[in-house]
Lab assay of single mutants.
Amino acid sequence: GKKITDLRVIDLKSELKRRNLDITGVKTVLISRLKQAIEEEGGDPDNIEL
Rank of each mutant, 00 (worst) to 15 (best):
E15R: 00
E15F: 02
D11A: 02
L30F: 00
Q36F: 13
I23W: 09
Q36H: 09
D44L: 05
R8C: 03
L34S: 03
G43F: 04
D46P: 04
E15I: 00
S32V: 06
K3R: 09
R19N: 00
L16W: 00
I31N: 04
D11R: 00
V9R: 08
T28S: 15
K2E: 06
L21W: 03
L34F: 03
L12D: 02
D22H: 02
I4L: 11
S32Y: 06
D11M: 12
T28H: 14
L7W: 09
R33Y: 00
K17N: 10
D22N: 09
R33F: 00
I38A: 01
T24P: 01
L30D: 08
K2P: 04
E49T: 12
K3G: 08
V29P: 03
I38C: 10
N47Q: 10
L21V: 06
T24E: 12
V26L: 11
R8F: 08
R33Q: 01
Q36G: 08
I4Y: 03
S32I: 04
D46S: 11
I48F: 06
V29D: 14
V9F: 03
S14H: 13
R33L: 01
P45V: 12
V9I: 14
D11I: 00
T28D: 08
G1E: 14
L12A: 03
E49R: 11
N20D: 09
D46A: 11
R19W: 00
S14L: 14
T28Q: 11
D11T: 04
L7G: 02
I48G: 04
E15S: 06
L16V: 02
S14E: 13
V26H: 15
E41Q: 07
D44N: 12
S14Q: 07
S14F: 11
K2V: 08
E39D: 10
I48R: 05
L50K: 01
I23Q: 14
L12P: 02
L30Y: 01
V9E: 10
G42P: 03
Q36M: 14
K27R: 06
I10Y: 07
S32K: 11
R33K: 09
I10P: 15
D6I: 02
N47T: 08
K13S: 03
N47V: 10
S14R: 10
R33A: 05
I48V: 13
N47K: 12
Q36A: 10
K17E: 14
K17Q: 15
L34C: 01
K27H: 06
I31R: 11
I10Q: 06
S32P: 04
E40H: 15
I4K: 03
L21M: 14
K17P: 00
E39W: 11
R19F: 01
G1T: 05
L50G: 10
E49D: 12
I38Y: 05
E40L: 13
K35C: 08
E49A: 09
V26D: 15
T28Y: 12
L34R: 01
K35Y: 04
L7V: 01
D22Q: 04
P45A: 08
L34Q: 00
L21E: 06
T28N: 15
L30M: 12
R33S: 04
V9Y: 07
K13P: 00
L30I: 04
K13C: 09
T28G: 12
L12T: 00
L50R: 10
I4E: 03
S14K: 08
T24I: 02
S32N: 09
K17C: 03
V26E: 11
S32A: 14
K3L: 07
I23H: 15
K3T: 06
P45W: 08
E41I: 01
I48C: 15
T24S: 15
L50N: 12
E41A: 08
V29T: 15
R8M: 12
G43M: 11
I48M: 07
V9S: 05
P45D: 03
L30V: 03
K2A: 07
K2W: 07
D44T: 09
R19D: 02
E39K: 10
E49Q: 06
L7T: 03
I38N: 00
T24A: 13
I38K: 02
L50I: 15
D46I: 08
T5W: 10
E49L: 11
K35M: 05
S32T: 14
D22C: 03
K2S: 08
I31W: 05
I31E: 13
T24L: 06
I38E: 03
V9P: 03
K2G: 02
D44W: 02
G42E: 06
R19T: 01
I23M: 15
I48S: 08
I10M: 14
K13M: 08
T28F: 06
I10R: 14
N20M: 09
Q36I: 07
L50M: 09
T24F: 08
G43E: 07
D44G: 03
K17T: 04
Q36W: 13
S32G: 14
K13Q: 13
G43V: 06
I48T: 13
S32M: 15
V9H: 06
K35W: 04
E15W: 00
V26S: 15
R33H: 01
K13D: 01
I31T: 09
E41P: 01
I38T: 01
Q36D: 10
E15G: 00
L34P: 04
E40R: 14
L21F: 05
E41T: 07
K3W: 00
I31L: 12
N20S: 12
N47W: 06
L30G: 04
V9G: 05
D22W: 02
K2Q: 09
R18V: 07
E49F: 13
R8K: 06
K2F: 06
Q36Y: 04
K3N: 04
D22E: 07
Q36N: 13
E49H: 12
K27F: 03
N20W: 06
T28E: 14
E40T: 13
D44R: 07
K2H: 14
V26W: 06
G42Q: 10
L7P: 01
N20A: 07
S32W: 13
I48W: 05
G25S: 01
I23V: 13
L21Q: 04
I38R: 04
K27M: 07
G1K: 15
L7Q: 10
V26T: 14
I10T: 11
N20C: 05
T24Y: 15
V9N: 05
L50S: 10
I10C: 12
L34M: 05
L7K: 05
G1W: 01
R19L: 02
L16A: 01
D46E: 13
I10G: 12
L30N: 04
P45M: 08
K27A: 09
E39T: 11
R33N: 05
R19Q: 03
K27E: 12
E15P: 00
V29S: 11
R8D: 15
E40N: 13
I38P: 05
E40P: 00
K35F: 07
L34I: 01
D22I: 06
D11C: 01
G43Q: 11
